[in-house]
Design a binder for these strands. Sequence first.
DNA 1: TTCGTTGTATCGAAACTATAATACAAAGAT
DNA 2: ATCTTTGTATTATAGTTTCGATACAACGAA
Lengths: 137, 137
Amino acid sequence: MLHLSLQQGDGVPLYLQLIQQIKHLVATGRLAPDSELPPVRVLAQQLLINPNTVVRAYRELEIAGLVYKRRGEGTYVSSRGTPYTPEECRRILAQKVEALLIEGRHLGFDEEKIIDLVRECESDLQRRARANEGVTI
Amino acid sequence: MLHLSLQQGDGVPLYLQLIQQIKHLVATGRLAPDSELPPVRVLAQQLLINPNTVVRAYRELEIAGLVYKRRGEGTYVSSRGTPYTPEECRRILAQKVEALLIEGRHLGFDEEKIIDLVRECESDLQRRARANEGVTI
DNA sequence: TTCGTTGTATCGAAACTATAATACAAAGAT
DNA sequence: ATCTTTGTATTATAGTTTCGATACAACGAA
């Protein structure tokens, strides 16, 4: 079973929350490559949101290269990586890292503390992925 | 002189861009503690946006603890840190780090590559801060 | 074919963002 | 006290984004 939970009205659009959580599930292995995502309507009903919101999330995930769709069949987790070039990937991530460092500095976290946090979060992700090994939808 | 440039219609609200860029200026030392930010009306005119938009950015920066205001005088960069407790800071950052790791994984960056990127971005920030040392508004 | 499934496209309502105009309040300078 | 400068608050309005209701189109199975 998918563990998705969206919060309405917290400032973050539903479709973005959905994208982030699906990315999370893929990254932690809870959604294996080529496994099928729930149909638009089913997921919409489970989450009590509009099918169009799911459509938008799936479409952007497809653009990002995380899923592929077959009309009349379904939406599947892509087994191939990102469609971006290595340089593009680097630039995209560097922007996010810089934002993180700035935010961290304001919260009293210097470079080393941030790196420590990165290591801890990574361990955490891996541990959670292991605990859910093999569990798809 | 402040180097602020906002882009209208790129999806990111102006007030958020303003917040991010001011955070950036503070983090890189281009805005020193206790230095004065431009008056609401002046900054609005320079950026060709509405004063209310600047008001909103300043207000949220104040809530975040980055600036303080004195009515009738102006808005100043706070010399004290965040108003959050250390645990809150940690939780806020951990969430962002986790999002970064997930994004990185999808883009082919593992933990070590991310950490390398963190070090590089930090150096970059420091270098840029040095190059602008002493330059305020 | 016909049916049921899947994703797609379009339109409208609601919420959010940005703007404008205006009036107000607090502090310092004269 | 008065003026100027600063931030604050209110109201109205337009544009954009987000979300939802509905009808449509492609694909496979019976």
